[in-house]
Simulated assay, not measured.
Amino acid sequence: MYTSGARKPLVRIMFDKFDTDKSGFLDSAELKSLCYDLGHPLSPVELDLALKMLDENGDGKISYNEFAQWWQQQDRFNKLTYDEEEIRSVTAAVKYFQHFDKDKSGTIDANEFKALYKDLLKNGFRIGTVEQALSTLDSNGDGHVSLREYVDWLVAVGSIVLKEKPAE
């Protein structure tokens, strides 16, 4: 993949270093180690939420692409740490999301989204038609709403308030 003399990108070096079992994925223990070693220890609750937020496809592990997407964000570690109020809000959002993820795939597909949409309307969200709402929440356009997309949307509309944290 890399020619001799070509340097691996830092994101690949970091991923490979912490993928200690060489599975091609980071699991919970490997993510915990990475955060701790880089000076950002996570509580067990934060670790659980971090794994859910970084695991875009809901398979229970973090692929290189999922990791790279997170790693490229300047405030990457700030997005993984929460105070008690934020933990309650994000945990409630995760449980709500999981209620509508009927097949437990880690994403909400178009069929599952219809029930979520109806419930959002019932709870006072005005988000247009079901198609418009799906398009809004599905920020990467893959036809599914991931937990991260859902939480990002809740933050954007002000349903979850995450406190500003100082830049790293």
Rank of each mutant, 00 (worst) to 15 (best):
59 D>W: 03
52 K>S: 11
115 A>W: 08
125 F>H: 14
153 W>L: 04
50 A>C: 07
5 G>E: 14
167 A>P: 00
22 K>P: 01
156 A>D: 13
19 D>L: 02
15 F>A: 00
63 S>L: 08
70 W>P: 10
47 L>C: 07
23 S>C: 02
21 D>S: 10
71 W>K: 02
83 D>Y: 01
31 L>C: 03
129 T>W: 04
17 K>Q: 13
166 P>G: 15
3 T>I: 08
28 S>A: 04
22 K>L: 06
93 A>D: 00
116 L>G: 08
111 N>Q: 11
82 Y>V: 02
156 A>I: 03
125 F>K: 10
144 H>M: 13
7 R>F: 14
66 E>Y: 04
26 L>T: 02
75 D>P: 03
94 V>D: 01
39 G>E: 07
120 L>P: 11
159 S>T: 12
133 A>M: 10
142 D>T: 07
68 A>N: 08
74 Q>E: 11
126 R>Y: 09
55 D>T: 08
129 T>K: 13
24 G>D: 06
128 G>E: 09
20 T>I: 14
61 K>V: 05
39 G>N: 03
77 F>K: 00
152 D>L: 07
74 Q>W: 03
43 S>M: 03
11 V>F: 09
86 E>K: 01
15 F>C: 09
31 L>K: 03
130 V>I: 14
60 G>W: 07
67 F>A: 03
51 L>N: 06
24 G>C: 08
75 D>K: 12
92 A>R: 04
150 Y>W: 11
76 R>Q: 07
89 S>W: 12
29 A>D: 01
107 T>E: 09
105 S>H: 06
57 N>L: 06
26 L>H: 08
16 D>W: 01
167 A>M: 13
92 A>C: 00
20 T>Y: 05
109 D>R: 12
141 G>Y: 05
149 E>N: 11
49 L>Q: 01
156 A>R: 15
104 K>Q: 12
41 P>C: 11
122 K>V: 08
131 E>H: 10
98 Q>F: 02
75 D>F: 00
106 G>W: 01
5 G>S: 06
166 P>S: 15
1 M>K: 14
137 L>G: 09
110 A>P: 00
53 M>I: 13
87 I>G: 04
149 E>M: 07
32 K>N: 06
126 R>A: 08
108 I>G: 02
74 Q>Y: 07
43 S>Q: 05
67 F>W: 12
161 V>C: 05
134 L>A: 14
138 D>H: 12
45 V>Y: 05
111 N>K: 14
77 F>R: 01
126 R>M: 02
24 G>Q: 03
144 H>C: 11
10 L>E: 15
112 E>C: 05
164 E>V: 04
75 D>E: 08
72 Q>I: 14
150 Y>M: 04
113 F>G: 09
142 D>I: 07
70 W>V: 13
98 Q>Y: 00
10 L>Y: 07
104 K>R: 15
9 P>Y: 14
138 D>F: 12
30 E>L: 03
111 N>T: 13
8 K>N: 03
54 L>I: 09
88 R>Q: 10
157 V>H: 06
116 L>Y: 10
59 D>Y: 05
114 K>S: 12
167 A>L: 14
6 A>R: 12
70 W>R: 11
83 D>V: 00
5 G>W: 15
50 A>H: 04
3 T>N: 15
44 P>V: 01
75 D>Q: 11
27 D>Y: 01
40 H>R: 13
129 T>D: 11
83 D>A: 02
117 Y>D: 12
150 Y>P: 01
17 K>D: 08
90 V>L: 05
159 S>C: 13
16 D>R: 12
62 I>V: 14
